[in-house]
Design a protein around this nucleic acid. Sequence first.
RNA 1: GGGAGUUUAGCUCAGUCGGUAGAGCAGUUGACUGUUAAUCAAUUUGUCGGGGGUUCAAGUCCCUCACCUCCCGCCA
Length: 463
Amino acid sequence: MKTTSIKKIWREGKDLIDSDILISGWVRTSRTSKTFGFIELNDGTFFKNIQIVFDENLNNFNELAKISIGSSLIINGKLVESPGDKQPFEIHATNIEIAGLCEPDFPLQKKRHGNEYLRTIAHLRPRTNLFSAVFRVRSLIAYAIHKFFNESGFVYVHTPIITSSDAEGAGEMFRVSTLDPEKLPRTDKGEVDYSKDFFGKSTNLTVSGQLAVENFCAALRNVYTFGPTFRAEKSYTQTHASEFWMVEPEMAFSDLNDDMDLAEDLMKYIISYLLENAPEEMAFFNQWVDKTLMDRLTNLRDSKFERITYTEAIEHLEKADKKFEFKPEWGKDLQTEHERYLTEEVYSKPIFVTDYPKDIKAFYMRMNDDNKTVAAMDLLVPGVGEIIGGSQREERYDLLLKRIEDMGLEKEEYWWYLDLRRFGTNKHCGFGLGFERTVMYMTGVENIRDVIPFPRTPKNAEF
RNA sequence: GGGAGUUUAGCUCAGUCGGUAGAGCAGUUGACUGUUAAUCAAUUUGUCGGGGGUUCAAGUCCCUCACCUCCCGCCA
């Protein structure tokens, strides 16, 4: 007999009433009286459980009466309408095979645990309501992103994980090497001789796929990369991880407005997809994690994102009643407190901030006509802060070269990136969307470590 | 890199003025013919994060190390 998923039972329950079915899964909770009992079983296919009713006619009733939470069962039975008001149907078991008992030191209990504690048992936490919902939604968001780009004619490009260039000077990188740190080869000058390393040069884990994907943008037009990214900064915050995933689209013959349109469409698409395909999970988040979640998401889906320039943002901040720890000043980067004030208090919705001073942005961003600002945009959202960073790229060879030199970068490292500006250059743009920050925003979960299956942060690579 | 806080039972946490450690839940045992965080009764559990110091006496005060958490910076 074929196993029926609990998802199928919940979705098509009425059609299955009175039929014999086979299910399997893990005990979430059980309640037993003298001659009968109830088991709530979760099989991983659906957020909700199914209630199993068993009685003393089963030959292993005594064992089942004290079944421990977490045990795995294989159940034959009949699906019937339930007299209880908490569920429309239940299964009257005709046979229950105990596939694996759960030993008494199983750490998950029939009560709420703190997220901090659950992080220490990351191998078991996906069995909880919250984490099963988070990781199912994480998967759905990833799928929605691919679906969105695919339907929009974008080509998915796998950019390299191991790179030899410091892509944007984006901070500390993890070194990739097969050299023995105990006996490093040295040059005559006493420096480490990377020509003896595996790739014959110094290599690192990628901090961004953007420079690589731009090359494909000049060939396949609209492209995106979506993969793991690594940053070795010692960031102890709720929104930073050492290993995270990033979505980076790139569009040829497009400007910053096209870029923002794309970002806005993508965010809205993801929300619509989740509301349609994960209603149980979203309702759960709304009830237990963030009571404003559904309102926030539906508002975002239905509203136009605000677009303001950096200069306007500074003006807003300067005339604000609020006392900031750091005084807003044109030419300095916006502090987190500034960003939060703008997106949470002034607009109460996502906002794009555009046209930042050139000195606080990366070398590849396109110089504006004022010669002071670049065509950059950050998308700020309430609760999470910066979720997207993007720009129109500098397509003019001379200006790009000058920026590389002015910022003290090695132009030899970027020869192939500069080539793009020599061989049929075009106005193009793109952005990086923090995948985990998106999951946080869509679920209301406040810590990035709780939306990554096995999070990596400084001093933590357990599991 | 800078700053703050936390660490007590399996989990969540209380512990007053320094006087030798407690609650709820979980677990275990029993009762119960429709429960749903089931209920009721009984009951077990501690190197108070590690090390050092002050004191007649330290979970409590001081020093130090570690871990975790949070804020800032860096960014996504």
